[in-house]
Write a protein that binds this DNA or RNA. Structure first.
Length: 258
DNA sequence: ATGGTAGAGCATCTA
């Protein structure tokens, strides 16, 4: 079972590359973020022709998440399952794929520590944990994959001193991520590479950050213990960050024993 | 001190 996550930064701009990538990476389940697309524009028929069932949750302007699966896809839930308010921000979609409960998440960026959006980020993460209580079991096969906009540790950013006082590394958001760990989720990529550093998934478009390897590891596959026990291999597909019109994020893939 | 780039869409907003 090959599970993947990729923030594509506009599915319309990236469609050819996504199609090419599906062809060589051959993932079974894919979580996409930042499709920046309305549901009506989502190319479900194209993905179907490539063998993937899909669900998309998007508002057309910003954000937008999707799940593709070639091992079945049912019981899709757009947004939070608590039903408190509609998820107009379209940052979360959940479905059952190949016996797993899979969520594609695009965690709010936070912008800066003194911005209202940062409080929103922390609240959103808290709400995500409640969502998991409603749709999934920590003891079952659960995967929450996406752009968390959090670097779990200092070694997950290219230069910790450059991030002092910034979002993505602050203690409260790392604690919110740790709460998901306490719920029962394991960072599958780090589980696979406990001792290797300089493994990033995102590089800013600006200032040649990719070529200087000034990156961050913020795209995570958080999996329940039963799935972590099946992790065989993981990789960041840096080739997908190269060449013509790349996303600013690379896909991250994890292989599970079936 | 601020910009650097990319994608939305047409003035900025978001990242």
């Amino acid at each position: 079972m090959r599970l993947a996550t990729w923030n594509v930064n506009s599915l319309k701009a990236r469609l050819e590359r996504v199609e090419e990538w599906l062809g060589y990476a051959r993932p079974d389940v894919v979580c996409l973020q930042e499709t920046k697309m309305a549901d009506g524009a989502f190319p479900a028929a194209l993905f179907s022709s490539l063998g993937y069932e899909s669900v998309h949750h998007g508002n057309g302007r910003w954000n937008g998440v999707a799940i593709l699966s070639r091992v079945g896809l049912e019981g899709a839930v757009a947004g939070f399952a608590d039903g408190v308010e509609p998820d107009v921000d379209t940052r979360l979609v959940t479905a059952c794929c190949g016996g797993m409960t899979v969520s594609s998440v695009y965690v709010p960026n936070g912008r800066s520590l003194d911005d209202d959006h940062y409080r929103y980020k922390l609240d959103w993460l808290s709400r995500l944990r409640h969502h998991l209580d409603l749709v999934a079991s920590a003891d079952g096969p659960t995967a929450v994959c996406g752009d968390f906009n959090i670097a779990p540790e200092d070694r997950d950013v290219w230069d910790p001193t450059a991030f002092v006082g910034s979002t993505h590394v602050s203690r409260p958001e790392r604690e919110a991520l740790a709460e998901l760990g306490a719920w029962g989720l394991v960072d599958a990529f780090r589980y696979c590479y406990p001792d290797q550093d300089r493994l990033y998934s995102y590089w800013d478009y600006r200032s040649g950050d990719f070529h200087s390897h000034r990156g961050m590891r913020i795209d995570l596959l958080m999996v329940s213990r039963v799935l972590a026990g099946r992790v065989r291999w993981a990789v960041v597909d840096r080739n997908a960050r190269k060449g013509k019109q790349p996303s600013d994020h690379a896909p991250v893939l994890v292989d599970l024993d079936s």
